[in-house]
């Protein structure tokens, strides 16, 4: 590729396969997680990250590598990202990686990323299964690079050495300038992720997809997976299901409003 006049950006995007959470439930009789029949998807926030990386490549020239740690079937989300336009994929899969909490996940991913060249690492804001939003900042720390979370807008400065981003805050956003390499976490508003087209899907299968195990990663099994996780899940349980209360139908608005205000006053809510 001719990159003259361009800033060649190497971007790594860690992506996660997550269940469609709306459908994950607990079986009320056995108290177990029902996962059967629940479809798996590419974490929606990671789609923004992949899209951002591809747009940078299209604009400035560069290379996008997606990385996931997960079971063998997590390959599906890598294929999706490749079909969107990522160039290479890495699947970290090994029994020893399983059961990792955010710290052990970040350790594993950062060990892989340390072996690669990059200008930017873009994570999703959070994975919708655990909703922790911790893996991104933890990777940044382990790589020793700065982070900017909740990025809604991204621009690379002309010399390709700095990025200027909009970081969402409670009141609006901050315009933040940071030197590369850096880690960003992507949130809604950053872009509209594209849908892979047929050509993309066909090409994806031919793009390089490397599988990495504990041995090839060269990391001690004690520091990763369940063994390397400082936190442990003691128990899961179903939350108390909320039930509907009063429902007023067919009453004239005035009377309904009156009842509502009485109800709120009786609850001490107003």
């Amino acid at each position: 590729m001719d990159t003259s006049g361009c800033t060649f950006m190497k971007v790594i995007v860690p992506v996660k396969q997550v269940p469609e959470v709306a459908e994950v439930r607990i079986n009320p009789e056995t108290g177990t997680l029902i996962r059967e029949g629940v479809p798996s998807i590419l974490n929606p926030f990671d789609e923004y990250a992949v899209e951002a990386a591809i747009q940078l490549k299209e604009k400035l020239g560069g290379e996008v590598t997606v990385v996931t740690m997960g079971p063998p079937q997590a390959k599906e989300v890598l294929l999706k990202a490749l079909a969107m336009g990522a160039d290479k994929a890495i699947l970290l899969t090994d029994r020893a990686f399983a059961g990792a909490d955010t710290w052990a996940t970040a350790r594993t991913l950062s060990e892989q990323i340390k072996k690669m060249e990059y200008d930017l690492v873009i994570c999703g804001k959070q994975a919708i299964d655990g909703d922790t939003a911790q893996v991104g900042p933890e990777i940044a720390e382990l790589l020793g690079i700065p982070q900017v979370c909740y990025v809604r807008h991204l621009e690379v400065e002309e010399d390709g050495k700095f990025v200027v981003v909009h970081r969402g805050t409670d009141e609006g956003y901050e315009v933040v300038r940071v030197k590369l390499p850096a880690l960003l976490t992507a949130t809604k508003g950053l872009n509209e992720p594209r849908l892979p087209n047929i050509m993309g899907i066909m090409k994806a299968k031919k793009k390089p997809l490397e599988e990495v195990t504990v041995t090839t990663l060269g990391i001690s099994p004690d520091s990763i997976g369940l063994k390397g996780s400082p936190t442990t899940v003691r128990k899961v349980f179903a939350p108390e299901r909320r039930k509907g209360g009063i429902k007023i139908e067919g009453t004239d608005p005035k009377a309904a409003a009156k009842k509502l205000v009485e109800f709120l006053a009786s609850k001490g809510a107003i």
Binding site: P19, V21, A22, V24, R25, I26, L33, I128, D129, G130, D131, P230, T231, T232, V233, R234, K235, V236, F237, A238, P239
Partner: peptide
């Protein structure tokens, strides 16, 4: 909460 509030988890360190 996890899985979008569909389950709750108790976590220890």
């Amino acid at each position: 909460p996890a899985f979008g509030g569909n389950i709750m988890a108790e976590i220890l360190c």
